[in-house]
Design a protein around this nucleic acid. Sequence first.
DNA 1: TATGAATGAGCTTTCATTCAT
DNA 2: GATGAATGAAAGCTCATTCAT
Lengths: 213, 213, 213, 213
Amino acid sequence: MAGGVRARRKAERPGEILDAAFEEFVQKGYAATRLEDVAARAGVTKGTIYFYFENKEQVFVAMVREFSRPLHIQAEEFATSSSSTAPEFLRAYLCYLYRILATDPRSREIFRLLIAEASRFPELIDEHHQNFMGPVVKRLRESLEAGAAKGEIRSPSILEFPELLLAPALSLNISMLLFSDRRPIDMERHFEIAVDLLLNGLLPRPAGDPGRH
Amino acid sequence: MAGGVRARRKAERPGEILDAAFEEFVQKGYAATRLEDVAARAGVTKGTIYFYFENKEQVFVAMVREFSRPLHIQAEEFATSSSSTAPEFLRAYLCYLYRILATDPRSREIFRLLIAEASRFPELIDEHHQNFMGPVVKRLRESLEAGAAKGEIRSPSILEFPELLLAPALSLNISMLLFSDRRPIDMERHFEIAVDLLLNGLLPRPAGDPGRH
Amino acid sequence: MAGGVRARRKAERPGEILDAAFEEFVQKGYAATRLEDVAARAGVTKGTIYFYFENKEQVFVAMVREFSRPLHIQAEEFATSSSSTAPEFLRAYLCYLYRILATDPRSREIFRLLIAEASRFPELIDEHHQNFMGPVVKRLRESLEAGAAKGEIRSPSILEFPELLLAPALSLNISMLLFSDRRPIDMERHFEIAVDLLLNGLLPRPAGDPGRH
Amino acid sequence: MAGGVRARRKAERPGEILDAAFEEFVQKGYAATRLEDVAARAGVTKGTIYFYFENKEQVFVAMVREFSRPLHIQAEEFATSSSSTAPEFLRAYLCYLYRILATDPRSREIFRLLIAEASRFPELIDEHHQNFMGPVVKRLRESLEAGAAKGEIRSPSILEFPELLLAPALSLNISMLLFSDRRPIDMERHFEIAVDLLLNGLLPRPAGDPGRH
DNA sequence: TATGAATGAGCTTTCATTCAT
DNA sequence: GATGAATGAAAGCTCATTCAT
């Protein structure tokens, strides 16, 4: 069919524009990105962008939403996933957070953009909080509560700030943003050490303490 | 004295401009800040800014340097401060980091700006790394090494990423950036819980383990 | 045809802008010309100029090139035109130079601009030298050489500075620049007298003087 | 005496400023010259210039007047100098014009500035015409007339445009402006050839040609 | 006299946005 | 649907000019 290719093209246009927008916004930030460069990268002209999106802000918002969706879905899935013992779950959970915040380039960059442009796009932050941070912290709290009830958690005060468990992954993300090319980081190792630190702490146990297997 | 008022004025002008620049850049980010607004806030006109600074970039750079100086001095002092036992030092150290990254408004905002504008001002990041991050991590590593030698540290692998100890403070900074007004945070409590988490970990000790008081 | 008017418009825009630029630059010089005035004269807005040209310098350069082209073409043609006897050719040649430098308003003004803005646009001078002055002087020298060989030229030392033959036309150009409106000049007459002066000199020959060795 | 140096300084200030202005205006042209650079070169500050001169225009005007004065005086002297035979006078005259227009750097540059900025400073052109061009052309015409009466001049029509005799010197000036660095010019030789060309012309005379109708 | 901080009008340049085709 | 020429509101920056000291 003659119109097939064209129709498919047409259906894909917005996505191609958002892909291009992602690259440009990540590279230069919101204000310094020119819609003309986005268009060029997407292989269209400026006018075409305005056919699909209201204005520059909406391109940014749509792009962030588009690239955040997988995160939101995963967060949702995690929130309803079957739990196991607290230590096991927490390990799996931290692993997931590392992937989102530090390992997977797409997610990592989206997070950076949110941090950098937070004050200009409060509604995006709200969405992110509602769709990602909220479920994640909620699920985290439930697990910690369950663990605390079973005596698997040493100090239940962590329930006041469950997001502290995100800190290492977040910290790694920021480090990569700041010192990106300057020194390579072994993320696998970073993860292992962070898990060990959070679960078992820095200080040794008194003699005779086997810790936990 | 005849020239007193004017001379004093003049000597203070650059500082007043940088104060105004701080407010504006923090509020709107680098690109969205208009130098005219900075001037108005400083009580001068555009031209005056160009009398003291080469261009917008240099205003930003000078401002970040100006507001980073206390940090750099503190970091240097810390790096040469007398140590005590590892647990004691680490607690004091985390307290210091909380003040820098989350509690003191000036330092906190400077840190955010560095994060947000990192890619546009790599030389500022380099400076910050050299003057703040570097000494801090160095001092941290030394303390951890000393502690490990004395058996005060459980797992010496933390020496591979001493900056993990910054993670809670950094995380709090980001949280306040993202969700600032949405919910108030008890930073004192956050600090206590983070210290407890890092030093003693999440998981309980087997029966008979007194941990450490 | 639907797109006709617009397409034609578009194709003509750069030319219209350069026409307007010519008028403004000639009237006020490079530095004192405002691109906004050029735009207004061309019936467009400032932004349109930047759609077709990189910046003010490039507008100037493009304009000079555009208006120099006919000169360069003519110079090239002259350089390859069939010669006749030296006196005949030189007369025709001086006539041509008068047209370029003094009579034709476009060429005359371009020459003035080159003189006035020479230090800011050395590359334009280079081009002009290569495309106009070069061929002209070359052709001139050939003719003088041929004439000298045939004994039609009295003193062959003119070959060291063939451009001396341009002097009257150049001088007239400058006079018109300096005293433009103040007194009208009969250019036809100026030409005749200059030709007579150059070809036959001021002084009478003594009786029986053959004028050549 | 303490005030001596200072008083002398003071008396010299305007001259020093004009010297500096000369260098800057010659180098960059009127519009592109910053009064601040003039001040710096003169070893004073911007404000000082405004103490001695009304504004930028007046600095330029005063400078041109200052540097034109020797020319005007010389022109006046020439206008009243004792004449000799036309050929002798004309040779001396052309020599003088070469010095003014091409050889002496100060005069040469002033002439260029007048050419370049003619349209912005018509009153300077008027002055120059009245004080220099006028007397020179007048004196020239008188000499030519005397020569013609004595039969020393071949074709009296030169009296219609006596300034044609300036053409070689003017042409050399422009050449040096346009192609200054590109090739060195032997000005002595240029002068000799120009004199020969003007006085005796390019073409040989047929035997028995009386040279005047 | 001389200074130089301060001004502000004015210029170049950018770019999101529009719209006739 | 898509184009890209055209717009015009900003914004950065310059610099002649002023004036309190």
